[in-house]
Amino acid sequence: MTCKEIAKLLSEQQDHKLPMSRRIMIRLHLAMCIFCRRLAKHLQFIHRLSEAVGDTATDSLIAVGDVVPAALSSEAKTRIKKTLTQRNI
């Protein structure tokens, strides 16, 4: 199997159980190929960090990111408050 095929299987095995034959192929390939070994590690890495993103405890760290807007705009806040007050009467 080529690295490309192995790469696809490495991703897929995170989403469904691969047949034994495939798992053996992965194992044999990883034993000889440092790049696919690294890739496998990178995929686990991404999995672990993404999980952390989902964890609201990490929220304060994510809040510092300049990519994701850190807060509701004040206009949005005012608008939402207004809508809620009308509903809550």
């Binding site: 929220d59 994510i62 994701v68 807060a71 949005a76 806040k77 408050k81 809620l84």
Partner: peptide, 17 residues
Amino acid sequence: PSTWVDEHGDVLFRFAV
């Protein structure tokens, strides 16, 4: 609700965005 928006609005917004 007005305190909800101030207390939780930003966290919920980040979660959504």
